[in-house]
C-alpha cells in the first residue's frame, strides 16, 4: 500500500470531452451491415484542431479554476497519454507554459497505456506527500485510435481529466491510500511507428483487465480494512460497458455505486483519461464524508487503486468550472465519413 508521510488530496479537478459523437451504430453500419451487439451508445471524437495537448490545457484550466491556487507553486506537470502530439517533444512543457506554471516546475510525459494518468497521480502523491513540492498537476488525456473495422473502433475515444494534487488540508477529497498491481501481460500494445494498436484477443478479459482491477481493488480494501459498503461510489477503468460492470460485481459493489462514474456508454473509452474522468463525474455529485474507490487499468498490464474521502470543501469549488455532464451534454453527432476526416484516417498524399 502507498501512503504518503503527509496527507495529500485533490485540490482541484477538471474534465474535458470534445463536442463530436460517433454512434457505435455508425461503425456497425459501415463494417458489419449493422449486425452484432454494440459495446456502447456513442463515443466522443476530437475535432480537427484538437489533440491531447489542447484537451489537457482545457482540463487543467478547469482544475485551476476550482483550486484557485498560485500556479507558480505547481512543482510538477505530468501528462499521461498514449497519444502525445509529438513522439519527441513534451506535451507537459506546453501545458505548463499555457497555464503559467513554467518555468520553475518539473515536466514529463508518461506512458502506460490506459494507466498513464493514474500513474501521474500516484507520483504527485509522492511529491506532495514528501513535501518536496506543494502542488502537482496530473493529467490523463487521450485521442485514442482504433484500427478501422477493429472491435476497438467502436469505443476508442477522446477526452480525459486533470487533477491538482496538494496538501490534505486544502483538498476537496483526500487520498487515504493507493496501491499498484503490475505484471507483464501481453494483452494490447503498439510498436513505435505503427499507427494503430494490436491486441491479444483472448488476453484482454480475464488475465488482463479483471485480474489487475479486481486484485488491486481487493488488496487495497484489505490493507485499509474497508469493504465495498464503506464506499458511496466506485469508479473503474471502462474500456466498454460490460467490463466495469462485471468487475464491480466481482469486487462486491452494487450497480448504484458504479453508475455515476460510468461514462463509457456516452463518451467511449478515453484510455488514460477513462477512470480519471469517471472520478470527475463522481466529484460533481459527491457529498462531504462520501468515500470513493477508484481503480485504473492499463494494458501491459497494471492497475492503480485509490481510496478517496470527500471533504466539506468540495461543495465550495464545484461550480467554479463546467461539470463533466456539461461537456457530455454538449454534443454534435457525426457520421462515419466525417469521423474518418476528423481522425485523419484518409491518407491525402
Amino acid at each position: 500500500m502507498l501512503k504518503p508521510a503527509h496527507d495529500v488530496g485533490i485540490v482541484g479537478y477538471g474534465a474535458y470531452v470534445p463536442r463530436f459523437r460517433l454512434p457505435a451504430s455508425e461503425v456497425a453500419r459501415v463494417w458489419t451491415d449493422g449486425t452484432g451487439g454494440l459495446p456502447i451508445k456513442e463515443k466522443a471524437v476530437a475535432g480537427l484542431d484538437e489533440d491531447t495537448l489542447t484537451m489537457s490545457v482545457e482540463a487543467a484550466r478547469n482544475a485551476l479554476a476550482r483550486a484557485q491556487i498560485d500556479v507558480t507553486q505547481i512543482r510538477a506537470v505530468w501528462v499521461g497519454s498514449e497519444s502525445h502530439p509529438y513522439a519527441v517533444k513534451p506535451t507537459s512543457t506546453i501545458v505548463a507554459e499555457a497555464i503559467g506554471a513554467a518555468p520553475f516546475t518539473q515536466a514529463a510525459d508518461l506512458e502506460f497505456a490506459c494507466k498513464a494518468g493514474s500513474e501521474a497521480i500516484v507520483m504527485g502523491m509522492g511529491i506532495v506527500g514528501s513535501q518536496m513540492g506543494r502542488y502537482v498537476l496530473a493529467i490523463g488525456m487521450d485521442t485514442a485510435q482504433g484500427r478501422p473495422g477493429d472491435a476497438l473502433e467502436y469505443t476508442a475515444a477522446s477526452g480525459g481529466a486533470a487533477f491538482i494534487v496538494g496538501p490534505a488540508e486544502e483538498s476537496v477529497a483526500v487520498y487515504e491510500a493507493a496501491l499498484s498491481h503490475v505484471t507483464d501481460t501481453p494483452d494490447f500494445w503498439r510498436r513505435a511507428y505503427s499507427h494503430y494498436p494490436s491486441h491479444g484477443h483472448r488476453f484482454t478479459g480475464e488475465p488482463a483487465y479483471f485480474e489487475h482491477v479486481v486484485s488491486a481493488g481487493q488488496e487495497l480494501m484489505q490493507e485499509l480494512g474497508t469493504q465495498p459498503s464503506d464506499y458511496k461510489y466506485v469508479v473503474l477503468h471502462q474500456p466498454n460497458t460490460k467490463f466495469p460492470q462485471r468487475a464491480a460485481q466481482i469486487l462486491g459493489f452494487q450497480p448504484e455505486q458504479l453508475k455515476t462514474g460510468l461514462l463509457v456508454p456516452v463518451i467511449g473509452n478515453t484510455y488514460a483519461g477513462s477512470s480519471l474522468i469517471g472520478l470527475t463525474a463522481v466529484l460533481d455529485e459527491a457529498q462531504p464524508g462520501d468515500r470513493i474507490l477508484m481503480v485504473s487499468f492499463g494494458s501491459g498490464a497494471g492497475s492503480d487503486a485509490f481510496s478517496i474521502r470527500v471533504t466539506d470543501k468540495l461543495n465550495e469549488v464545484r461550480d467554479r468550472a463546467p461539470r463533466t455532464q456539461d461537456y457530455i451534454a454538449r454534443r454534435k453527432l457525426i457520421d462515419y465519413a466525417t469521423y474518418v476526416r476528423y481522425r485523419h484516417k484518409l491518407q491525402m498524399n
Binding site: L48, D49, E50, D51, L53, T54, V57, E58, P85, Y86, I94, A98
Partner: peptide
Amino acid sequence: MVTRKLSQEGEEGQILY
C-alpha cells in the same frame, strides 16, 4: 477563449497552438 491547433508544418514539422 480556448487553446487549439492553429496549423502544422506537414506531418514532420512543428505544430502551432
